[in-house]
Design a protein around this nucleic acid. Structure first.
Lengths: 220, 220
DNA sequence: CCACAAAGTTTGACGGTTCAAACTTACAAG
DNA sequence: CTTGTAAGTTTGAACCGTCAAACTTTGTGG
């Protein structure tokens, strides 16, 4: 249906508008996220508007239509199921599957996708703890807050890592902070903008508050 | 490396030149096989020649270079491993996996491909019995002759089905003639251009000699 | 309220892949 | 040896996705 390029714009607009207070995405950020110049993003968004995937007006923000939203969620389902498959079935490393899934997500038909879902027993989160929308596009929302918000002494369970960069994922895994792991917040140094945390069975690690923003936890 | 389009031309030229006495492919057949006009094929072959993937001169036949040959075999390996995966791991139907693999073969990286090979225990034939080249591009050749060439009374083992059309594959499967199955040639009607064969545990079936050309067997 | 920076738009161009249609070559049959 | 046909080539145009660069709008600090 939508071309590979369009699917990438959909993903970008989806995630940008999700974390914007206005619920709209700007051209600059769309361009940055898709790795393209602002002019290109502008051109493509206009094309997407013609295809009724987004709504926007000149110099105003970009917002997905219901159709665009559904399409974006579809891509997300494909992406996350593929990541799960790559880690679980093919035993590929957690830290690299994001890039691989990025290429494959545009090539899986829905027949293959559903067979994949069956093979994996309909998982509801991917290896990073991100929720996988079901075939109807509904997502089972997980609660949780950034590790940065917990007070010293808190016992937490890691739910999700909200940063796909391989180096960060390797760092996190190395210190035992994968989704599902239990940990204790040892100390928070507000002066040093840092937080120290110890996962069960691992050495304590100190990281910047900014990094801890990407580690989503629940009270254990 | 090579674009998706180019990979498709490579596959076409590879298989056409393989079954041509001269070892060369014609523009018309390349165009037909890739589903494109002759003019387009001509244009693209010229481009491939510039990229040293094929050798050809105006109004002469097209032949793969060593580099093109290697690239074509690579695509074939990807295609066949994916087909095997779709049938074996995802339990998709034998008769439809060809089309699915056609879309996926351009999106699997070599990391994913090798992980797939390991997961499948390095199979050497795909679900149709076609040999899967190894990572170095070497193919373990299987002997065998068309079912059409066996005399009445011959006991055979089906080795390979050399026709990917879903209807044909369904027909073959329905009569128990999947790769690996044992069968007996009951009769050959040279006047009716037909052959009757019975797979172990199935009813006998009569088909045209032309159809039996696509069923490759070995003496059992 | 003005000027300037940041964001957004437009335009012209390019590479890749495709088509239709006009044209050329090769070759076999008479 | 001519000629008709099948095969092949070329050309001009289109669409997609992209860029660079010129331009316009918005909104904010002084």
């Amino acid at each position: 249906m939508a071309s590979e390029a369009i699917e990438n714009y959909l993903k970008a607009i989806y995630s940008l508008s999700r974390e914007s207070p206005t619920g709209e995405a700007g051209m600059k950020s769309i361009a940055t996220m898709t790795g393209v110049t602002v002019g290109t993003a502008s051109t493509m968004v206009k094309r997407m508007a013609a295809a009724k995937l987004v709504k926007y007006e000149r110099f105003g923000g970009v917002r997905l239509t219901a159709k665009g939203d559904r399409a974006a969620i579809d891509v997300q389902r494909r992406h996350r199921l593929i990541e799960t498959f790559l880690v679980q079935t093919l035993k590929l490393d957690w830290s690299i599957v994001h890039a691989e899934a990025e290429r494959l997500e545009h090539a899986v038909s829905s027949a293959v996708l559903e067979a994949l879902a069956i093979h994996l027993h309909h998982p509801c989160v991917d290896p990073h703890g991100d929720p996988i929308p079901d075939a109807d596009g509904k997502t089972h929302v997980g609660r949780g807050a950034a590790l940065a918000t917990f007070a010293p002494g808190s016992r937490v369970r890691v739910a999700r890592i909200a940063d796909q960069r391989p180096a960060f994922l390797s760092f996190v895994a190395e210190h035992g902070l994968r989704p599902g792991a239990k940990a204790v917040v040892a100390a928070t140094g507000s002066a040093a903008q840092s937080i120290t945390v110890q996962a069960t069975g691992c050495a304590a690690v100190t990281m910047a508050i900014a990094a801890a923003e990407s580690i989503i936890c629940e009270t254990a």
